[in-house]
């Protein structure tokens, strides 16, 4: 097996849990329901199988995550990925960062933004709009007890509406959640 990866990378990764995932063959009806396993969809990631240990939370969390990242209107999909990426850099969730950096590139076709973040981390020097989103993600993740007029002013300066700011808050916050699961319950390995 390949060694665990401890540095940020854009290479394809797979996540190896430290705890025992649910065995799909022995899953209860509640677990299968929370896993959204159907006869035509039996492919479930190790991550989701780990979370299925606690079915009631997983059943709420999956649709919440999807609504935060993919709902219509408001902040652009790419903007939400940037919020996710900022959180994942602060919390050092290498797997989360890899997934959402690649998704940003796919959506926005601007790999140079991700390159700058991967090269300079939290000191990344970005265009005004991206910088405002990224800085807010960093500040809210690292110091939720210290966001206020300064952060708000910068978000407004770049032209964000209330709904866009609300979407950004949620995309950063849901990674405060996701990072604390993914980074603490397992680790990434490079795909062979």
């Amino acid at each position: 097996m390949s060694d665990p990866v401890h540095e940020f990378t854009l290479d394809a990764l797979e996540w190896h849990p430290y705890v025992q995932p649910v065995d799909l063959q022995k899953a209860t009806p509640e677990q299968l329901d929370a896993l959204k396993v159907t006869p035509s969809n039996t492919k479930v990631s190790a991550y989701v199988l780990v979370l299925a240990q606690e079915t009631e939370m997983l059943a709420e969390r999956s649709p919440l995550f999807n609504d935060i990242m993919y709902s219509d209107g408001g902040l652009s999909r790419g903007g939400r990925e940037l919020g996710a990426l900022a959180a994942s850099f602060v919390n050092h969730c290498i797997y989360c960062a890899q997934v959402h950096a690649n998704r940003f590139i796919q959506l926005e076709k601007r790999p140079e933004v991700v390159d700058e973040i991967y090269n300079n981390g939290l000191d990344a020097d970005l265009g005004e709009h991206d910088q405002a989103l990224f800085n807010f993600g960093v500040d809210l993740t690292a110091h939720p007890d210290n966001v206020g007029v300064y952060q708000f002013y910068h978000l407004r300066e770049t032209g964000l509406s209330d709904l866009e700011i609300l979407d950004l808050i949620h995309s950063v916050a849901i990674f405060g959640w996701a990072n604390r699961l993914m980074h603490t319950l397992g680790e990434p390995h490079r795909k062979d």
């Binding site: 979370l51 240990q53 007029v149 950063v172 405060g176 699961l181």
Partner: peptide, 30 residues
């Protein structure tokens, strides 16, 4: 195994909630 996932879930949810409340407070007060 399940205890560990339960504990991780409680920690992760409350931290999410702290961030949401902090962000919403910023919107409320500015």
């Amino acid at each position: 195994d399940r205890d560990i996932v339960t504990l991780a879930g409680i920690i992760a949810f409350v931290n999410y909630q702290v961030l949401v409340v902090a962000g919403l407070k910023m919107l409320r007060d500015n």
